[in-house]
Design a protein around this nucleic acid. Sequence first.
DNA 1: GCAAGGTC
Length: 854
Amino acid sequence: MKTVFMVAEKPSLAQSIARILSRGSMSSRKGLNGTCSVYEYPGTFAGQPVRFKMTSVCGHVMTLDFLGKYNKWDKVDPAELFSQAPTEKKEANPKLNMVKFLQVEGRGSDCIVLWLDCDKEGENICFEVLDAVLPVMNQAHGGEQTVFRARFSSITDTDICAAMARLGEPDHNEALSVDARQELDLRIGCAFTRFQTKYFQGKYGNLDSSLISFGPCQTPTLGFCVERHDKIQSFKPETYWVLQAKVDVDKDRSLLLDWDRVRVFDREIAQMFLNMTKLEKEAQVEATSRKEKAKQRPLALNTVEMLRVASSALGMGPQHAMQTAERLYTQGYISYPRTETTHYPESFDLKGPLRQQANHPYWADTVKQLLAAGINRPRKGHDAGDHPPITPMKAATEAELGGEAWRLYEYITRHFIATVSHDCKYLQSSVSFRVGPERFTCTGFTEIMPWQSVPLEESLPTCQKGDTLAVAEVKLLEKQTSPPDYLTEAELITLMEKHGIGTDASIPVHINNICQRNYVVVESGRRLKPTNLGIVLVHGYYKIDAELVLPTIRSAVEKQLNLIAQGRADFRQVLGHTLDVFKRKFHYFVDSIAGMDELMEVSFSPLAATGKPLSRCGKCHRFMKYIQAKPSRLHCSHCDETYTLPQNGTIKLYKELRCPLDDFELVLWSSGSRGKSYPLCPYCSNHPPFRDMKKGTGCNECTHPSCQHSLSMLGIGQCVECESGVLVLDPTSGPKWRVACNRCNVVAHCFENAHRVRVSAETCASCEAALLDVDFNKAKSPLPGDGTQHTGCVFCDPVFQELVELKHAASCHPMHRGPGRRQGRGRGRGRRPAGKPGPRRPKDKMSALAAYFV
DNA sequence: GCAAGGTC
């Protein structure tokens, strides 16, 4: 029997589609990556009985990147990234092993049906899947079609079955347009980001951002925030005047009237109006009106609207809201949360989800009433053909979801109930008055359907045309126009959506990016206030090449890409041309960078003027300055050299000890008082002295054979948790001595009351770990009798075993696993796990010295 | 250490 292999874009869709096509009778099992499932069922295809095998990928299978050596920032001129630097497709998520998975499942199938989302990205993923699967499929005989594309506009029985009935072919042009987009974004984004980052970080010491990134989406996003900032800055308040009349309704109630002219900006004219009215004793009712108005029920909920409300009403950032929504989805509380669609398909069962809510403590009454009286069909919205609007799928309580998730769920559910409710109708009544020659109005609302709420104002007096009310007071109010406030996240989302910047799934990422890069900060009310850095960057782009920050940068490129998708332009030509344009922009930007520098200088200090003297340079023996702002580093202004330091920790001078290789004073990096710490040579860390040392490492990874701070001298044995790490004695941790892994986060506490701990040259006979030589305090020695000195293996010695506490690794260490599992991995000092040969470690002193002089 | 786009 032939096999038809089918692939969807995500696990949830594979399941839904398989369930629909097999009418619920399919077998299911997990795939080898543990994330994607495989569904199998018998059926007919092209008139033949076949076996269907449905599974999915997880979004893109591949991602575009530069070849390895072009990822070395100091070795490649960013200008080369526009054309010379070759790119390659890498697996997007190596952990998922997607190519292997597709090949295992697709091997030997006769046909493939591609059920990827029906947008350009989906079309591109079609070809990623084909690249993996075609080579392992059975060869077609006689040139029959074996590759099919299913096109569906919603995940409903009718639509999926219709798509299956009229399969087409994947669209190569659409896929190519995405290839072009990927390459443009990569080359342009990385070139500008690397140049800016290196240039400004090499000049200023207090930018406080570890990366000065640029991107066709994130930069215009920042642009919107700075544009609003500029409006606020250039705002000049204007004085205006308002005439306010107060009339008496009865003896203890009066009413404020709104002036029909609203306000005037000329003081004398305002005064004139006051003069004309202030002596009037009566206000005549000129007209009354009552109009029925309606506040429409909301459109069904899509992602961006959910993010807007989450930010503005719930105070939840888009990134966080999205994560929360995803959790609600995977737990079955809501439908798929990434959708552009605001329209329910005709066949969508609205009553089912509503019935789920019929006993909810908060809204049971409303829901029951709706179910009894009949629901109102939701308004006609936009159908993007992706997923139905976000809908609550089962009832939940606050206790079961917990704070944040509950608030989002509550909103989604209330929104859903509203979409199938009736519009909110109310009466607007207004009374127009005349005071002298001037007209005033008073407006109020009356509810018609009390269960729906519109803020009600004080009820109006009942009066009719010709009535008069006594004027209590007419006065002039002097007011000032006020500047706009900073952009709210919700407003920013709207702007991005309007200009086509980002997608429903990526909008939160771009906003998060500009926060993380310290271009904007989130203020109260979730308003985004640009930082000095953000402002200077945007102003700099404006000065040099405004197109770099204008929102049109994205849409202009996308227009070109659409030509590829439509088959009206050649992929190579569009790519080449657009890259050429941006390459020119890049060179112009580099040549004009002085223009941005002028702005930078106003807000930021040069490297040489930043930081505090900390440790001495090994070359000139002058003090280098420690720059704490991100990225933290040491700068020697005499040699004009910068040495980057490990981030996310504190740096102190290490007893003025020096590195024997370069004479630089060592510093001590520490992650916190009870955490990890290790000494580090600023020079070695940036220019590793040995072949097997990586950049950015400390003395705990240094293979110097005799330096007292090195791995060779302080290493004890292989890490109990990670593959490649070695446990190293922390020489500064006394009196609460610790050993820590030089790769992962394992920290083991030992010997609370020892005044000296040394790593012995001898090793343990049974596990090869280095022995520790410990001098305990006389008064608090845990040793039997009066003994204060003991040498032994931390893993095997019965005395030490009692004293060593292996933090978050206790159950992993062979010692604690019980018998029979100790073979295979020696724990000797610096020993590598079998099958994973690292750089070979020197065995004896002579070979160690040989390594030393490479 | 970069981009933006999928999705987990």
